[in-house]
């Protein structure tokens, strides 16, 4: 009797489960799993003289990954992504704190003002920065008007310019999770801390920051990882002087047409991602806070 009901339940649930989960499963299989496996396979292949991929095992791409030029670019990528993340925390944290703890009627508007710039296409905003920082841009005009400089300063095509563009692209990914974490903070805890004699700075480091640490972690993951792949920012603002690993991959799939080498370079990015996500989980990070 018990067996019969369970069988009945099984039958009645198979069809709806297939109808609901089937499409997602097929999608993930065909457009996420299969492509990534193919990339892994291709990273062990080579190309013929017509740039076609030859599916025959070779480790040559992986030996190329260790060339001095490439190592320098990995270092540069990690440095740019790291500095970008640090700046996003240092600027984003107090900024998110001030908006989240704002008690006036402007709070909602202040929050919206963080999001509005991101409704304009990201490329055109990065181009806006290039126009602003260029030798005939507003910044130079302004500095010359104030006689701070006599002739235009070249702000473009430097590591700092690329970092600025990256900070610009990713700062909302830091501010928004921090805003959520800080807003949830129970203000009675802060009052308790100060009532018990803690100075504001001590309350900050021993109460506020530990309680919002999860927001900082998830923000860092969401800034650091995508930053490594944002090739167009370093293209537009760095002008080829600040290549990152994303630029290397882009070139292999476009102008250089060596897909297997590009695939091997992508494997590095996948490994870095896995490593950081594992670290994030170890530190107690919740995967769901990564999907803003």
């Amino acid at each position: 009797m018990a067996e019969k009901t369970s069988k009945h339940e099984f039958r009645s649930n198979t069809v709806p489960a297939l109808v609901t989960v089937g499409p997602v499963a097929v999608l993930l299989l065909c457009l996420v799993v299969a492509p990534l496996i193919l990339v892994a396979v291709m990273s062990f292949c080579s190309t013929d003289e017509f740039y076609n991929v030859v599916y025959k095992f070779t480790a040559v791409n992986y030996t190329k990954l260790f060339s001095v030029d490439y190592l320098r670019i990995y270092g540069q990528s990690l440095l740019i992504a790291f500095v970008t993340t640090v700046i996003c925390v240092l600027v984003g944290y107090p900024f998110a704190y001030l908006i989240a703890r704002n008690k006036t009627k402007w709070k909602k508007l202040l929050y919206m003002l963080v999001i509005i710039p991101f409704w304009t296409n990201s490329l055109i905003r990065i181009y806006g920065w290039r126009a602003f920082l260029g030798s005939s841009g507003w910044l130079n005009k302004f500095l010359m008007m104030l006689h701070i400089v006599d002739e235009p300063v070249d702000f473009l095509y430097k590591t700092g310019t690329t970092v600025l563009g990256m900070v610009y692209c990713f700062i909302p990914f830091m501010v928004l999770p921090l805003y959520t974490a800080i807003e949830k903070l129970d203000s009675s805890l802060l009052e308790a801390s100060s009532d018990l004699g803690a100075k504001p700075l001590r309350t900050l480091f021993e109460v506020i920051i530990p309680l919002t640490a999860s927001g900082i972690f998830s923000g860092c993951i969401m800034v650091f990882i995508p930053c490594l792949g944002y090739f167009f920012v370093s293209n537009i603002l760095g002008g080829g002087n600040t290549d990152m690993i994303g630029n290397l991959i882009e070139r292999q799939f476009k102008s250089a047409n060596n897909w297997p080498l590009g695939a091997a370079l992508s494997i590095i990015l996948i490994l870095v991602t896995l490593l950081l996500v594992k670290l994030y989980q170890k530190l107690g990070g919740d995967m769901d806070s990564l999907g803003v």
């Binding site: 457009l31 492509p35 792949g229 090739f231 999907g291």
Partner: peptide, 24 residues
């Protein structure tokens, strides 16, 4: 497995997703 796979497009840099789709 499905739950885990859902995080891949969210965390992996877009460029990797882009070239993987191009390849397939």
């Amino acid at each position: 497995i499905i739950n885990g796979l859902l995080y891949i497009p969210v965390v992996i840099p877009e460029i990797v997703i882009g070239i993987a789709l191009l390849t397939i």
